[in-house]
Design a protein around this nucleic acid. Structure first.
Lengths: 189, 189
DNA sequence: CAAAACTTAGTACAATGTACTAAGTTTGAA
DNA sequence: TTCAAACTTAGTACATTGTACTAAGTTTTG
């Protein structure tokens, strides 16, 4: 294997282990028994390394989608494709994960599992009450689904916004995401 | 205002401006015209500062939820509460945002808006085809909703997993999130 | 009034990303 | 085979970062 590929492979391994920001170029070089100068020859900046990994993900994902479009449209096929995408993302998880100080700080200082537990109970109560009051019609499993939805949603809507809506105002952004939440809950009215 | 509060306020302002990892303790001190030693007296570690801000968010949010629980259960009231939560999160967005190298790298090197556009068209086609094939029953606005959902979902399921499911295997994690996606799409079958 | 709380300026250290040099080695095309 | 390009090495250097400490002052408060 070419040194360049070795670097990419080992870097991804280390990123998956500890996260993007926790792995320095010196460590990647040390782990491969090559010099920093060598690594620097192939990837002058850490960014270049990350970019290469990102390109690999994109190419792999694009290939999956193209495969999908070649066949007939079916829910089963789509779900299969999406699962492959997820597997692929997981393979490169280090590129996406652990690069955030914040979650590390939270995990270090808060009893995060109990916060999670509390949050679940919170929403469970909210949805149960709404069902009792006749505001929502919830079947078996719906509550768990809605809890998962709002957990993911509440945690990441703002990151999503910072990526997708760079030029929108606070009000527009919040309106947009409130619209999503309303629509989602509206499916159970 | 006490110095401690001044520090918190200015730190948040800078974090909101450029993101957690882009603002150093020296800059916060300089910006306030106080010494690093002084800042260090109040917050020995940057983490301590972040923790304080996080606590403020939590307290504010908890207060909103408690208010909600004091009144009667209604969808409208819940949505109102959630909007307040979102406003609050937005106020502290710097603590959550921009702390990730990855999005900065992506935005710097890729034409991100066109990728976004392409992704939307991708999913638009997928859902339209599925509707035509009779696999999904989609009314006005449903497609936009599903696109927004899968965009958020596909981007953040893994981060969510890294927070919520620390002990689960890859297969279990992917199964769980595939379950959510199936359930969501199942609502339109 | 005295102690506690606060503030200052300054130093220090290890780690990081980045950048460069001068020298060798390997490899592939003419 | 030859020779230039591609690759690899070890080492140096620099600015920036989080973190930690000191010794000295000032302000606040019980």
């Amino acid at each position: 294997m070419k040194t360049k590929d070795k670097i990419l492979k080992e870097a991804l391994r280390l990123f998956n282990e500890r996260g993007l920001s926790q792995v320095g170029v010196r460590e990647i070089a040390r782990s491969l028994d090559i010099s920093v100068g060598n690594l620097s020859y192939h990837f002058p900046k850490k960014e270049d390394l990350i970019m290469e990994l990102l390109s690999q993900i994109r190419m792999a994902n694009d290939a999956r989608y193209e495969e999908y479009f070649e066949g007939r449209a079916s829910l089963g096929r789509f779900l299969g494709t999406f699962r492959q995408i997820m597997e692929n993302q997981y393979r490169y998880r280090g590129v996406f994960l652990g690069h955030d100080e914040i979650n590390q700080v939270i995990k270090k200082h808060f009893d995060y599992l109990s916060i999670e537990e509390k949050r679940r109970k919170f929403f469970h109560r909210i949805y149960t009450d709404l069902a009792k009051a006749g505001e929502l019609k919830l079947a078996e499993g719906d509550i768990e689904f809605l809890i998962s939805f709002i957990t993911l949603f509440g945690r990441f809507w703002m990151m999503e916004a910072s990526i997708s809506f760079t030029d929108k105002s606070k009000e527009e952004i919040i309106d947009h995401y409130m619209g999503l939440l309303k629509k989602q809950l509206g499916l159970f009215v």
